[in-house]
Amino acid sequence: MKNKELYIKNVFLSREIPNDNYLKNLPVISNLKKIKELELTKPVTFIVGENGVGKSTLIEGIAVAMGFNAEGGSINFCFSTKESHSNLHEYITVGRGCRKHKDGFFLRAESFYNVASNIDYLDKDGGGPPIISSYGGISLHEQSHGESFMALVENRFFGNGLYILDEPEAALSPMRLMELMCYIKKLVDEKSQFIISTHSPILMTFPDAEVLEITNEGIKSIDYKETEHFFITKRFMDAPEQMIDNLLK
């Protein structure tokens, strides 16, 4: 998938955010103000950074601006369990590529339960082919969190799609994360684009992905080995006893 074929090419602030809006204080917002645009150049983009910098808020804003339900799901999902999402989508513009995606999904780890519940509710109501058939045929509530997430990826992601994932590692073991990477590769080969917020050093190793790190100072593209996530994890795994001893003194 060439750069010009990406479904989302860039994101930028297009309206001033009021001072009384909490978004104003997020590092991601102040950083977006400093740059003309946040450019996406690869089929797989990882957005990383410490808790509180606004990764999930940015991911959510992009998804809602592209027409996805704020709590997750495909374009066709329109349920609302709790109005907890921000209104960032009202202040950003998402630059679209020349091609339109044929499939898409927004995954929020914290509200995937609500997506599963909505599928069960709609199927119970009847009136059409079972929706769960597109998710492997077994209720997502009858599987573990990790199994249900992989059922989603294996059965519902069709290719030629835009897939926006917020911290997918929350559901997955290290082995399952590596399995997810295999599916991402398959879907990228089928002209899909992924935008993923993550804390996982394993996911960040995906070949030829771009890693965008958000800090209090700015947003920059870096090698995954330069991220604090990778550095701290490697340091810990190289000498776990020493790290634990230092931490618990």
Rank of each mutant, 00 (worst) to 15 (best):
V44P: 04
S56W: 01
A63L: 06
V44G: 09
K100Y: 05
G97C: 07
T81L: 09
V64W: 15
I47K: 07
G97M: 13
G72Y: 15
G97F: 12
A65F: 14
S86D: 09
K82R: 14
N87E: 14
G52K: 02
K100H: 09
E50I: 07
H85G: 10
E90P: 01
G61P: 10
I62T: 11
T57A: 01
I62L: 10
F77D: 14
L107Y: 15
G49S: 01
R99N: 07
E39F: 01
G49N: 01
F106S: 13
V53I: 02
L38K: 02
T45M: 01
A70F: 15
H85N: 13
I92K: 06
A63C: 07
E83A: 05
L58K: 08
T45P: 02
S80C: 07
K55M: 00
K36M: 02
L58R: 00
T45E: 02
G73L: 08
V44I: 08
K100P: 00
S80P: 02
S80F: 03
G104D: 04
E37R: 08
S84V: 07
E39I: 03
T57P: 00
T81W: 15
M66V: 03
F105K: 04
S86P: 11
R96I: 14
G73R: 11
M66T: 03
T57C: 03
F77P: 04
K82A: 10
H85L: 06
H85V: 06
K102L: 10
N69L: 11
E60Q: 13
V44S: 04
S84W: 14
I75V: 09
E50A: 12
M66D: 05
L107S: 11
F79N: 15
P43G: 05
T45G: 00
P43Q: 12
V53K: 00
G61Q: 06
T81R: 12
I62N: 13
F46N: 11
N76H: 10
G61A: 07
S56I: 02
T81V: 14
F79P: 02
G95D: 06
N69T: 08
N51L: 00
G52I: 03
N87C: 08
G67N: 14
K34A: 02
K34C: 00
C98V: 13
K36D: 12
F68Q: 11
S74K: 12
F106V: 11
F68K: 14
A70E: 11
I75G: 03
N69S: 08
K82L: 05
T57M: 01
C78Y: 09
F79V: 07
K102I: 06
K36W: 03
M66K: 09
G72P: 05
L107A: 08
G49W: 01
I92E: 03
K42P: 04
F68H: 01
H89R: 12
E90Y: 02
I62E: 11
K42I: 03
G72S: 12
P43C: 05
I35S: 07
F105Y: 15
K55S: 05
F105C: 06
L40D: 04
G49Q: 00
L40C: 11
G72Q: 06
E37Y: 03
G104K: 07
S80G: 10
G72F: 14
K100S: 03
V94Q: 10
G61L: 04
C98D: 07
Y91H: 04
G52W: 01
K34D: 04
